[in-house]
Design a protein around this nucleic acid. Structure first.
Length: 768
DNA sequence: TAGTTGGGTTTTTTT
DNA sequence: AACCCAACTA
């Protein structure tokens, strides 16, 4: 009896095939982590592979830690020698040693998205780009896409002929890279780009890593982008022991450059690849899996596969409809409480998943009211919070004052009476003389026009140099404490009467703890090492599954996780799938949303609940949305459709195509979706390609659903100034009417309910 | 220089 | 609703 006997045949095959290129197509919940860990164990235990010859790339730092732990559990020891980490951390480590070969300093800093945005802002100012016309965001995303495709600024510029906008972006890209280089900084994408560049320009470095990493494994391969592929391909070129694991159905990161072709074309790139399919799902019960399979079956462009389980049917997928988002949130909280009360679940068995981060707010509020312990994952990253970024800027300045961004961030925090004018003068002088901002500050007396601010500048410089000189003998913790004490940062926060000052102080305490943890755990703790580690931490990395808390997060963040009880909230067209993808004429976009739905559903082990609200506030606007089209793709017999708390009522479509609740608690789903049965998932005709208003739904033609899909509605029969009546809000006067892309947007001042803005097709106003 | 206010904008997802 | 920025005031 060995540890490998517990694997099924395909898993075993994947474990034993240690040589050459291997593609493991691992369906959701098919035990791929087990395969990877056992494969590593097998290589070390049975094939004489040295642990340090193995590189395993995971999607998150958390997954990396868990993988290492599990390998440790299998083979006892030696796992600390394996490189297990994310693409970004791996590259950061390589660059820490060798980036000086391509003209950067090895104590480079890593810029997050906010930092990049600040740089772009300056670049735009310098290039006289009107950011109203060409948004910073758009520029950054164009640059990021270019980097993900390993396109240099020069190449980018050469491909922009004749396109004015692209030329502007190309100019920004060039300037942006110059600015980063000047600050000795890399952005996230650069970590990959510069590593590949390093490998290309320094064959000796590449060779040393090829020798080092004779066996390479990549998890979540479907979400790799082109540079990541280049990186891996270069490393694996020599020994060709490359094992990639992924599931094309779970590819959900196209927006950040993921190239699904990497997995789809693996066999073309490596014709001798062994392909192994893992199709037995060990996670979910039957109905959940069947539902997820039915949904994903609507995607045309995928590798054929069929996941199965021997777990039995399990309970039905629950579908719940609500009047509005508040009721939905109440339900979520109460349902979880009920499960806990009845001992069906602990809080940490439950996760509520959303399409967008903002949706968590409402549920969070209700959880607080109900006293349900919860944890929101994502949204604003811990290390992106203002106070944390301030502290980080201090540390960065102490560590490496070449980062102008960091210096300027803290020069007047806390207030030192150094204002915009002074900062501008220093910056001009620095630019003119090709020095860093901090460098210019050190010679402040030379700078014209500074006047009495000079003393304040000198005090600041002395303070920073003081911090730096003490770095030699102080521990990191002591250094941090010193910064807190001397800079006056804590004092200012403590004396602030800001509402959230307390939260901020708590965050700073937490940050201090993290620094202490780093210093105790790292082999050779350094300030630079800490800053690097911290720059690459994702929110999900800090989730502790042992905490008995309900997790609230996006479906993206939930990738790779599993829970006994999963709630997918906000299942509405326009929210999920998102409005952008519905309106797009690229059908691949909705396929990506569908994959996200698949990811969400397959997180559930025993119990899956889908909820939607017919109305919710989005960005300050009340929106009325039809139930998600993905719901329609789940076969009837897998679901129970009920409206909790609406006893003896039934759900029907009413006049204005909304849901209303009267009658029995069990709802015939045809009435919810207004469509004939036959439209379920038939391969070859994607649901979105068909009109919704079909025979049998004649009475509902022109419903909110079909309107939303079929394009902009026809002009309403009322105009501004007319009196109209609404089924719920009563009578009112039209105050504005605006033609939007998909429909007329109508604003009505209702006599009873005040002003509402809604889409004409959904509102179904009657002219009086 | 610092703090406030009003107006305009808005990514859906993240290392 | 929430955030960011410019302009204004103390």
């Amino acid at each position: 009896m060995s540890i490998y006997d517990t694997l099924n045949n395909e898993q075993k095959e994947a474990v034993l095939q240690t040589e050459g290129p291997v593609l493991i197509l691992a369906g959701a919940g098919s035990g791929k982590t087990r395969v990877l860990t056992h494969r590593i164990a097998y290589m070390i235990d049975h094939c004489g592979v040295q642990p340090w010859n193995i590189l395993a790339i995971t999607f998150t730092n958390k997954a990396a830690g868990e993988m290492r732990q599990r390998v440790d559990d299998l083979i006892g020891t030696g796992s600390e020698q394996i490189w297990v980490s994310t693409f970004h951390s791996t590259c950061a480590k390589i660059l820490r040693r060798h980036i000086d070969r391509i003209g950067y300093d090895t104590n480079y800093t890593i810029y997050d998205t906010d930092d990049s945005k600040s740089v772009i802002k300056e670049v735009c100012k310098k290039l006289n780009i009107d950011t109203k016309q060409l948004k910073e965001r758009a520029i950054l995303s164009a640059i990021s896409s270019a980097k993900n495709e390993y396109i240099s600024p020069e190449e980018y510029r050469n491909s922009t002929e004749g396109d004015y906008m692209l030329q502007k972006i190309a100019a920004c890209y060039t300037e942006y890279q110059l600015a980063l280089r000047k600050n000795n900084a890399l952005d996230f994408d650069d970590l990959l780009v510069k590593t590949v560049e390093l490998f290309q320009t320094c064959p000796d470095v590449l060779e040393s890593f090829q020798e080092r990493f004779k066996y390479i494994m990549v998890d979540e391969y479907q979400d790799t982008n082109t540079v990541q592929f280049n990186f891996i391909e270069m490393l694996a070129r020599r020994y060709r022991n490359l094992c990639v694991v992924g599931d094309d159905d779970q590819s959900i990161y196209k927006f950040r450059g993921a190239n699904i072709r990497n997995i789809l074309d693996f066999e073309q790139v490596f014709p001798d690849a062994h392909v192994i399919k893992l199709e037995q799902n060990y996670r979910s019960t039957g109905r959940i899996l069947d539902g997820a399979n039915a949904v994903i079956g609507n995607n045309l462009h995928r590798k054929q596969k069929s996941l199965w389980t021997d777990k039995g049917n399990g309970s039905a997928i629950h579908l719940r409809a609500f009047d509005n988002a508040y009721e939905e949130a109440d339900f979520l909280v109460n349902d979880i409480r009920k499960k806990v009360r009845e001992k069906d679940a602990d809080y940490n068995d439950c996760a509520v998943l959303f399409r967008t981060n903002a949706q968590a707010r409402l549920v969070e509020e209700r959880m607080v009211l109900a006293g349900v312990p919860y944890n929101v994952v994502g949204g604003v990253n811990f290390y992106s919070r203002k106070e944390i970024k301030d502290v980080l800027a201090y540390l960065k300045t102490v560590d490496n004052a070449r980062d102008d961004l960091a210096v300027r961030r803290i020069i007047n925090v806390p207030k030192r009476g150094i204002g915009a004018t002074t900062i501008g003068r220093i910056q001009t002088y620095a630019d003119l003389n090709g020095m860093s901002f901090f460098g210019a500050m050190q010679v402040v007396d030379e700078i014209p026009g500074i006047g009495k601010a000079a003393e304040k500048i000198k005090a600041f410089v002395t303070m920073i140099l003081g911090f730096r000189s003490r770095g030699e003998m102080y521990t990191l913790e002591e250094q941090l404490q010193e910064i807190f004490d001397i800079s006056g940062y804590l004092d200012e926060l403590e004396n602030s009467d800001d509402d959230d000052a307390e939260d901020r102080l708590e965050n700073i305490d937490e940050f201090t703890n993290k620094l202490i943890a780093y210093e105790t755990e790292a082999d050779e703790p350094t300030l630079g090492g800490f800053l690097q580690e911290v720059a690459l931490v994702a929110d999900i990395d800090n989730v502790d599954g042992d905490d008995n808390k309900v997790l609230l997060m996006t479906m993206h963040a939930a990738k790779g996780l599993e829970f006994n009880h999963v709630y997918l909230a906000g299942m509405e067209d326009g929210l999920f799938p998102s409005y952008m993808t519905i309106m797009s004429d690229d059908p691949f976009e909705i396929e990506e949303e569908r994959r996200l739905a698949y990811v969400g559903m397959t997180r559930a082990k025993e119990d899956l609940t889908l909820t939607f609200a017919k109305c919710r506030m989005i960005r300050g606007e009340t929106q009325y949305n039809a139930p998600s089209r993905f719901l329609k793709e789940i076969p009837d017999n897998l679901m129970d459709n009920r409206v909790p708390g609406k006893k003896k009522e039934e759900v029907i479509f009413d006049e204005d195509r909304m849901f209303s609740f009267h009658g029995s608690p069990v709802v015939p789903r045809e009435q919810i979706f207004a469509r004939p049965k036959a439209t379920v998932t038939r391969r070859g005709t994607p649901e979105y390609a068909k009109p919704f208003a079909l025979k049998g739904a004649a009475g509902l033609a022109g419903s909110g659903i079909s309107k939303g899909v079929e394009g902009a509605g026809t002009a309403p029969d009322y105009v501004v100034g007319d009196r109209v009546s609404h089924i719920k809000y009563g009578e009112g006067q039209v105050t504005a009417l605006e033609k939007g892309e998909r429909d007329y947007k109508v604003t009505v001042m209702f006599d009873q309910c005040g002003q509402k803005i809604m889409y004409a097709a959904f509102a179904k106003l009657k002219k009086l």
